Computed example of a mutant assay.
Amino acid sequence: MLLDFCSVNATTHAVFGVAALAGAGAALGVEPSPYAYPAAVAAAWLPDIDNPRSRLGNGLSRLKSPVLNAATRPLSWALRTISFVLARTVGHRTLTHSLLGGALFALLVSPLRELLPGLWLALVAGYASHIFADALNTRGVPLLWPVGRPFRLLPGGVRSGGAAELAIAAGTAVVAGYLLSVAHPEIPGLL
């Protein structure tokens, strides 16, 4: 059951990451490159690295291909180490789910802004989408961590893994699909 819960949550964050990048691209009048969308998904999973059971927190070593497992092992170990340290020092849904965490992440990836602006936009939009999505749920997010109470966008919030989360994710996917079809008119023709 826990695996199903994590999969739904990871999928919801992936959808929000793609939607955030597509929306940011539309708002800024830029057309994100196709490579930017997987980066937005990875960045949308990144705030949960403080949870060792999350998509990135448990590393990448459980891939189906032994060759990919060997190639990603160093990154997998690094992700697990970071997850362990964050979980033990600040805990889940603290620093990485706050404005401070978002600002630190944006600062960390800021060299990409001039080099690869599309990738930078994807990473920042994806990370921000995670905080936004978690602000919709019952626990909210500690925007002003380490002080203040959790912030929720909806009174009471939406239960993670429930039908309401699925409905919100589906609605977000529709909006993302529309924005993608506007930004990349060739996509509907490919389907």
Rank of each mutant, 00 (worst) to 15 (best):
A78P: 04
A78H: 11
L79V: 06
R80E: 15
R80D: 09
S83V: 07
F84A: 12
F84L: 07
T89F: 09
T89Q: 11
H92A: 11
T94A: 15
T96M: 10
T96H: 11
L104P: 07
L104I: 10
L107W: 05
P111C: 01
L112D: 05
R113V: 08
E114Y: 13
L115H: 14
L116R: 12
L119K: 00
W120Y: 15
W120E: 13
W120A: 14
A122C: 06
V124D: 02
G126T: 01
G126I: 01
Y127H: 03
A128L: 12
S129G: 03
S129K: 00
H130A: 05
H130M: 09
F132V: 14
A135W: 04
A135I: 02
N137R: 05
T138L: 10
V141F: 05
L143E: 06
W145C: 06
W145T: 06
W145G: 02
P146N: 06
V147G: 07
R149N: 14
R149I: 12
P150K: 05
F151R: 04
F151Y: 13
L153H: 00
L154P: 10
P155V: 02
G157Y: 00
R159K: 07
G161W: 00
G161M: 00
G161Q: 02
G162K: 03
A167F: 10
A169F: 05
V174E: 13
V175G: 11
V175D: 00
V175W: 10
G177Y: 05
G177A: 04
L180C: 06
S181F: 02
V182M: 14
A183K: 07
A183N: 10
A183M: 08
P185K: 08
E186I: 09
E186T: 06
L190A: 15
L190H: 12
L190Y: 10
L191V: 10
